[in-house]
Design a protein around this nucleic acid. Structure first.
Lengths: 179, 179
DNA sequence: CACTGCATGTAATTTGTTACATGATTCA
DNA sequence: TGAATCATGTAACAAATTACATGCAGTG
């Protein structure tokens, strides 16, 4: 059972300060997007549950009445999870599934698929570069910055490797077709 | 709606010859494992469904009575999917989620996590090397071999990149801690 | 006052795994 | 004959997305 890690994503978000469900969703979309996704359908129920367990508590002050803050218990729970080795989920890479059976289609179609993959991966690397530059500029003083940059660089490393693989694979396809 | 691609994994499996649900599961575990996973709970219902749609048909002969073969319609359906650009699923990399919030734990713990990640990724690369060698040896004549090798090499490229990232990140952590 | 953004939530649906039940066949 | 492997299937559960409903606040 791939136990849900949504609760830890939420607890982690609250280490940055009290937040509403809406704030957490925005953080996910803006800052975690390159390696994590959460939807409202997950966030709101889990907020209720975490409050019930005493891991977070509402900050009931006027306009900020819907924000939640991490409790000491919540912080402990997060830390316990953080030091645990992550479980590798079952991978599912649709491109490779297609490639595995690609003999069923003309080589030109496979070439097209790989070129599209390379193009979109290049665009992704460009976006990661932008994210990195933005972080350096707007969060220069943030104590979490070094860790945030590490997550961005992971994406750069593996994406660039994927591009090199696509280059190599395209070259091989050309060789195979010309023969 | 991330429409399930299980049906195409099953149709693809049957391009290698008639198979039972059990055979398909074994193919998934043995040959697709490095980029795809399927469970019995998915395979058997989809076999029934595909047969109902006329994309596969039972090969009703004696001992082989439970095997299914691809129909012309099934092959067309597979090809239509194969040439479609794959949809990128929402990524969820637990290691990076932990790293994003890693300021909450001592740097030594993060170092340990990264070293464990590097070790298991190295083991994975070694396993991919074995798979590649086995394929070259035992399937030297198989017409699908070139495509199978491409999928293995994808894993090698991105895994080696992940190892380099881990090296780099560990070095940065050391620098940050020694200061 | 209409539009946009802020904000909360739920129901329906989809997708998938896990655990279990069941039985046939092979072979040491 | 007992264990392992081959083989088929389903029910319960878990996880997650999507679409929708709802309403408030600010502002041009």
């Amino acid at each position: 059972m791939p136990k849900s890690r949504t609760r830890y994503a939420v607890l982690g978000a609250l280490t940055l300060g009290p937040m509403s469900g809406y704030d957490i969703k925005r953080l996910a979309d803006e800052s975690l997007a390159h390696f994590w996704a959460e939807s409202y359908g997950q966030i709101y129920p889990i907020l209720k549950q975490l409050a019930g367990e005493g891991l977070i508590r509402p900050r009931g002050r006027g306009a900020r009445r819907s924000e939640f803050a991490l409790t000491a218990k919540g912080r402990r729970s997060l830390r316990t999870w953080l030091v645990q080795p992550p479980l590798m989920p079952a991978v599912r890479i649709e491109l490779l599934l297609k490639l595995f059976f690609a003999r069923q289609i003309p080589a030109a179609e496979t070439t097209r698929l790989l070129k599209e993959f390379r193009t979109s991966t290049r665009a992704w690397v460009a976006q990661l570069n932008t994210i990195e530059a933005d972080l350096q500029r707007t969060r220069a003083q943030h104590p979490d910055l070094p860790y945030w940059l590490m997550t961005v660089r992971y994406g750069m490393h593996v994406s660039r490797a994927a591009i090199r693989w696509a280059d190599e694979t395209l070259a091989e396809l050309r060789r195979a077709t010309s023969r």
